[in-house]
Nucleic acid binder design. Structure first.
Lengths: 182, 182
DNA sequence: AGTATAAGTCATCGCGTGTTGACACCAGAG
DNA sequence: CTCTGGTGTCAACACGCGATGACTTATACT
């Protein structure tokens, strides 16, 4: 691999990381290609070269993989602990989820991306632990998680911003169990 | 009151209604003053005259009153029914709530407006039925409602879009009771 | 050595935006 | 009949945006 190309791969990834940060912090519309390029110290035209358009950049940057584990065989008592742990990792691991969430409020493309994450990842993973009304149950779990994320990271309601992880788990656990098992 | 002035009051209210509709459908950034003015059949400059700026228009349009009833004396069993009923009325009554929610994802001004609705209306109303950790409990209730609204009206997750009101109440009821009373 | 290929820059275009100030219209008051 | 104040229009400005295409640079391959 040529040295310059190695640099380029780095720049590409830097652009994606900067884009995620910007989209997560400012939403889709307020994020400008110029700002993303500026964060990396590169010209805006290069972003277009690499990703074709702003929407192309977003699509690449907001490609979300929840990495949900296989839940078959997980005991009912451990279910919520596993789920809450996983979702915390996704929220605070990088900015992808927040970027998608913020953008989804405004952009139909982002909303569709969210729906496809739900259909491809959340639904199937949760179907393994419920025997009836699986889509409905999965949607309620998603709504719970979305609401908590919205209140904590976007709206920043004080009581939730400061809430430690284990307390969040203690509150959300019974709710998730209710949606999945009752 | 002069006839012309009566017309003007009508125009003002029409502008606010159109702004609510646009902000609710498109979010803050994608809503243009020209579009709002166009919906009413009026020049964009008039909107500025009346509301000073786009932000002024939004502030007036997104002034949200949840009209939560006094909950003291409501039996524990009826609590969730009252709350869910009230929130459905707010979501589907007009576009104010959705406008605020969509905008809050992007705009710090809108997020602050949301926090103040929470602090001035939701918190106090729910404090009447809980004796400890009231702010925390109220925030969890808010997160639940926000998540459901986000999933149903913004993301449009199919299982929730089609869910009838009484079924939503059956699902959300135990969750709200858990957050308020456990 | 020379050429192709990819990285990156630069100037610029077209467009839509929020906002402004000057103007036109029309009702009611003196 | 004139004046005043509010309603509404019009043309325009300044700005920032996404996007384009021509250009420069430097590396790797033949």
């Amino acid at each position: 691999m040529p040295a310059r190309a190695r640099d380029a791969v780095g720049t590409r990834d830097d652009l994606l990381a900067a884009a995620r940060r910007r989209f997560a912090a400012d939403g889709y519309d307020r994020t400008t290609i110029r700002a993303v390029a500026g964060d990396v110290g590169v010209d805006a035209a290069l972003v277009i070269r690499y990703f074709g358009s702003k929407e192309g950049l977003f699509t690449r940057a907001a490609d979300l993989d929840l990495r949900l584990p296989d839940l078959t065989g997980v005991r009912a008592g451990d279910l919520s602990k596993v789920l809450v742990g996983r979702f915390f990792a996704v929220w605070e691991g990088d900015d992808t989820f927040l970027a998608l969430l913020r953008a989804a409020a405004t952009s139909e493309v982002a909303a569709e991306a969210m729906r496809s994450v739900f259909a491809a990842q959340v639904g199937p993973a949760l179907a393994a632990v419920t025997d009836d009304r699986a889509p409905e149950r999965a949607a309620l779990v998603a709504a719970t998680v979305l609401g908590f994320a919205m209140a904590r990271y976007v709206l920043r309601l004080p009581p939730l911003v400061d809430m430690p992880r284990d307390q969040a788990e203690a509150w959300l656990g019974p709710t998730l169990r209710h949606y999945l098992l009752d």
